[in-house]
Design a protein around this nucleic acid. Structure first.
Length: 297
DNA sequence: CCACAGGGCGGCA
DNA sequence: TGCCGCCCTGTG
């Protein structure tokens, strides 16, 4: 592991709070100095603003390039300004939602981690989802202890906690027994999690191959997995497989779609409506609407 | 004690 | 298809 920093120029449509608190990720927390600390595939990151720049610091695996990772992870090559314009013409509700969450960007996260995270999200709340993920990481993931000198550079505000646990690989998690996993308090979702870990570990499921498929075919593959339905599949596709047309329909989205756009409880009909209206921008449209419903007032 | 949380599944019309 | 009860657990 090594310490590395990257400075990025501030872009349009970029805000740490919007990005990390719009519900797309579960392992980022705000620190007392306003920066955000997250545990990702390559290690532990801390992101803050310094004047007009974004400062990314990381204690990461030797072989990785922090800059390359972060540009992809934070989706910095996409033109959100233009997407905002496209999806909000003649739509005052979407305009409000965009004004409210102007700095949202869709993170490009790890597909295996998203599979498990969103299986856990079913009929659950965000604090508890985070807790569950931390539990399995602590039990089965790699332990990362940050050396004191690096700790001081990574967290200038004086964070004490220096031990973190990476999200376990499928192989690591597949070694769990049902009884052990039960102690992680996943509830009824634990059997789905273990089964998925075994399938991915045994290569009966290859998430990289699924990612290569077109959206609809990839979704069909994903919903075959126990514990993965339409909503969870769309979350995986959107947050880790670069499928920008994925439109996860949960209770909040159902609510606002019924109020404003289409009067139906049928998830497939809502999906079809979204695709006709927003096309390849459906995913980001969903995030603006979800964040607006969830976090306003 | 009860309802409900960013769903999914299985059973039944 | 559409609808419903149930699934663990924590919190109000």
């Amino acid at each position: 592991m090594k310490f590395e920093t990257v400075k990025l120029v501030q872009k349009d449509c970029f805000n740490l709070k919007d990005i990390f608190e719009c519900g797309q990720c579960f392992r980022w927390t705000q620190e007392e100095d306003g920066s955000y600390t997250g545990i990702v595939k390559i290690g532990v990151l801390n992101i803050s603003y310094i004047k007009d720049e974004i400062m990314v610091k990381g204690y990461v695996e030797d072989k990785t390039s922090l800059k390359e990772f972060v540009i992809d992870y934070l989706d910095l090559n996409k033109d959100y300004k233009n997407i905002q314009k496209e999806i909000s013409t003649n739509d005052s509700v979407m305009k409000d939602a965009i004004r409210f969450g102007n700095g949202i960007r869709i993170l490009n996260q790890d597909s295996w981690e998203m599979l498990i995270s969103f299986i856990i999200s079913a009929a659950n709340n965000i604090p508890r989802i985070s807790k569950c993920i931390n539990n399995i990481s602590k039990e089965y993931g790699k332990k990362v202890v940050i050396p004191q000198d690096i700790q001081n550079k990574l967290f200038k505000f004086g964070k004490k906690e220096n031990t973190f646990y990476l999200f376990p690989s499928a192989k690591e998690l597949s070694k769990a027994t049902m009884e052990e996993l039960r102690d992680c308090n996943l509830g009824f979702r634990d059997k789905y999690v273990l089964k998925s870990a075994q399938l991915v570990s045994n290569k009966k499921i290859n998430l990289n191959e699924i990612e290569e498929l077109e959206y609809k075919t990839a979704k069909k593959e994903l919903v075959n997995i126990d514990g993965v339905g339409s909503k969870v599949a769309d979350c995986i596709l959107l947050f880790s497989m670069k499928k920008s047309e994925a439109f996860p329909v949960d209770t909040w989205i159902k609510k606002i779609m019924n109020e404003i756009y289409i009067d139906s409880q049928n998830v497939k009909k809502i999906n079809d409506y979204a695709y006709k209206k927003w096309g390849l921008n459906s995913g980001i449209a969903q995030q603006y609407l979800f964040n607006y419903m969830r976090n306003k007032s």
